[in-house]
């Protein structure tokens, strides 16, 4: 689209439009630095990284469903379900590894279930919204039935606690896991043939089908990864809090959706990636941090975050016009 005679200012304007999210992040960092003198201290930054890593892992999964042209509201319920299963199995069997395995396979199963239903209905984002709304309700009910509505305590293994609480040279392990997962996903979707197919099937499923891409399989992969990521997030969360509540995933799907969309992943699919996830999750973490610092009530925070999300999808729509 670039014109030879395009003036310098037009270029800057275009760059600004394309990178609104990055500019918002920089503005928030400056605001944070002005609000608190300790903002740029290593401890504060590392604490921030540790806190946003659960949401970050969730946002990876959510973004994968966005990229294949879907939408996943059930990952919050998957998070609750995997969390109670993980801690519950650990408590009854005494083996943290077994608990992790059960949680991961439960997340995988939940994601694959969503994916299969998406294949059956040949759906887009509207169908995905309704289907995952219902599977989310079922997932929450499973979590509540499994633990009879009570919190479960019982994580004892030191290596397990280290996932959420430990550091490698003052850098939190949870954040390292998040970053490694993002790098792997970014390489897969941007550098491999499989990833190109995945993005194309999300951008235009009809033409992707015509050039011979198995669009339904791509949907299955996207939703399965989302379920798996929710299970990883559940492991990180339970290892940090050493307990699991059937309500721990309430609103987590919404948080992941905000982070992912505010970062610049398009709602129509096929456009975006893990760089956007990184920016979005940081923006979301900083907004939460600043709202907490200024003492805003947690209920009012949701209204603010909802407004941010609405603004982001309006911007997304205007950019596509």
């Amino acid at each position: 689209m670039s014109d030879v005679n395009e003036s310098k200012w037009n270029k800057i304007g275009g760059w600004t439009r394309d990178n609104t999210n990055l500019l918002l992040l920089i503005a928030l960092i400056i605001a944070g630095a002005l609000l608190s003198e300790n903002f740029f201290s290593w401890t504060n930054l590392m604490n921030l990284m540790r806190r946003i890593s659960v949401n970050g892992v969730m946002a990876i999964g959510f973004t994968m469903t966005l990229l294949v042209g879907g939408f996943d509201l059930s990952i919050g319920a998957t998070l609750s379900m995997c969390a109670v299963l993980c801690v519950g199995v650990e408590k009854s069997s005494g083996s943290a590894a077994l608990g992790m395995a059960v949680a991961l396979s439960a997340g995988l199963a939940m994601g694959a279930f969503n994916g299969v239903l998406m294949m059956v209905t040949r759906g887009g984002s509207g169908e995905a919204f309704l289907i995952t709304l219902a599977t989310g309700m079922v997932g929450t009910a499973i979590a509540l039935t499994y633990c009879s509505g009570l919190d479960i305590y019982g994580v004892n293994a030191d290596w397990y606690k280290a996932i959420g609480q430990g550091n490698v040279a003052t850098f939190p392990i949870a954040a390292i896991i998040w970053i490694i997962l993002m790098v792997i996903m970014q390489v897969i979707i941007k550098k491999t043939q499989f990833g190109r197919r995945l993005l194309l099937s999300g951008a235009n499923k009809k033409s992707a089908f015509l050039v011979g891409i198995d669009v339904n399989a791509m949907k299955l992969v996207g939703f399965t990864i989302a379920g798996l990521m929710a299970a990883v997030a559940a492991i990180i969360m339970t290892s940090r809090t050493t307990a699991a509540s059937p309500y721990s995933g309430n609103g987590a799907d919404f948080d992941a959706a905000i982070a992912s969309i505010v970062g610049g992943n398009s709602l129509v699919g096929g456009k975006g990636g893990m760089v956007q996830v990184l920016i979005g999750v940081m923006i979301y973490g900083l907004i939460t941090n600043i709202l907490n610092l200024t003492g805003v009530d947690s209920v009012v925070q949701y209204i603010v975050k909802g407004a941010v999300l609405l603004l982001a999808i309006c911007l997304d729509k205007l950019n596509r016009r």
Binding site: G123, I131, A134, T135, M137, V138, T145
Partner: peptide, 20 residues
């Protein structure tokens, strides 16, 4: 809790059948 699960499953079946 079981009632919620049954309701969720009913909703899921209805949605999938309708969309299918």
């Amino acid at each position: 809790n079981m009632q919620e699960m049954v309701k969720g499953l009913i909703l899921l079946i209805i949605i999938v059948a309708d969309k299918y």
